[in-house]
Write a protein that binds this DNA or RNA. Structure first.
Length: 285
DNA sequence: ATTAATGTTCAGAA
DNA sequence: TTTCTGAACATTAA
């Protein structure tokens, strides 16, 4: 399920490895197909060994481990998980990095992690080692940005306003704004009472302002709750605990339930661009 | 036993 | 140029 809040939570959980060194890198033998890697597996693993972890950063829905040998970029897609604790099961671990204190480091022995793993049940996720330039080339403007520097209303509006695509579908386009996922797109539009099927070009200035504010508020709130752990429970925070924002969803996965906002309509499920959308036809116009 | 659905995104076609 | 479709993959529920 990794959307922005879940990826942000993963990144925060990785901070203890900053300053440490990669002692070894391996792909465990598993019965399912290996996940996508760039460069190809052998080269990638070799390049990682000996690198020092300089920092951790979220870019859109990607986890970036900054190394002195490049940026190690994980794209969790549907079911990926980057963590220091135990994976949900051993059969879908795609990469293990053993980490150690750097020689000569004077770091105290405060909960030194021993390994980082990338677990991905479906295996749609990817791992890439990119230069700074390659990383920048793959970036869209982030919803929350570095150090919570957010995209502005005018920037959001100018990037969207010419499009006739349904507003819900447009919010999922990572080239327009990076970080909004399927679940949170439904929540955002429900909050501001806008019908997800409306063309992006039909929104008023006032609605763009509301959309922008709701987007930031919902995503930041979801980060505080460490994301949403859905049905199959694959997503966990750094301590291997479930997120809790799923308890605050107003629309997503609430088909048939009474709308919490208007108390009149009930939530319906439709399909847009082959993805589920949940909304209240009574109050989202 | 099939089929549909699941958090994402990319290439290629329309 | 923009927008839509299918594919990548594993698993569970209907």
């Amino acid at each position: 399920m990794p959307e922005l809040p879940e990826v942000e939570t993963m990144c925060r959980g990785l901070h203890p490895i900053i300053g440490m060194q990669i002692a070894s890198a391996l792909c465990p033998k598993i019965s399912v197909k290996p996940c996508g890697m760039y460069p190809e597996k052998g080269k990638l693993l070799k390049k990682l060994v000996g690198c020092e972890v300089l920092g951790i950063e979220r870019r859109g829905k990607r986890v970036v481990i900054q190394l002195d040998g490049g940026n190690l970029v994980f794209q969790p897609k549907m079911t990926g998980l980057v963590s220091l604790t135990d994976p949900p099961d051993p059969g879908h671990v795609r990469l293990i990095l053993k980490v150690q204190k750097k020689a000569g480091s004077n770091r105290k022995n405060i909960a030194q992690p021993e390994q980082v793993f990338f677990w991905d049940r479906r295996g749609l996720g990817t791992i890439a080692l990119w230069t700074n330039e390659e990383l920048e080339n793959h970036l869209g403007p982030d919803v929350l940005g570095i150090d919570a520097l957010t995209i502005s209303v005018s920037e959001l509006q100018s990037r969207s306003i010419k499009s006739k695509r349904p507003i819900k579908v447009l919010l999922l386009d990572q080239k327009v704004v990076a970080g909004v996922g399927n679940l949170y797109a439904s929540e955002i539009l429900h909050r501001i009472g806008v019908d997800p099927t409306r063309g992006a070009d039909s929104l008023s200035d006032k609605e763009w302002i509301a959309l922008h504010a709701a987007m930031l508020d919902i995503l930041q709130t979801a980060i505080r709750y460490e994301g949403s752990t859905l049905g199959d429970g694959t997503y966990r925070n750094a301590l291997n605990e479930n997120g809790s924002y799923q308890n605050h969803h107003q629309a997503y996965d609430r088909e048939g339930e009474r709308c919490s906002k208007c108390k009149r309509g009930s939530i319906v499920r439709i399909v847009q661009a082959q993805r589920a959308t949940f909304y209240c036809p009574a109050c989202q116009r």
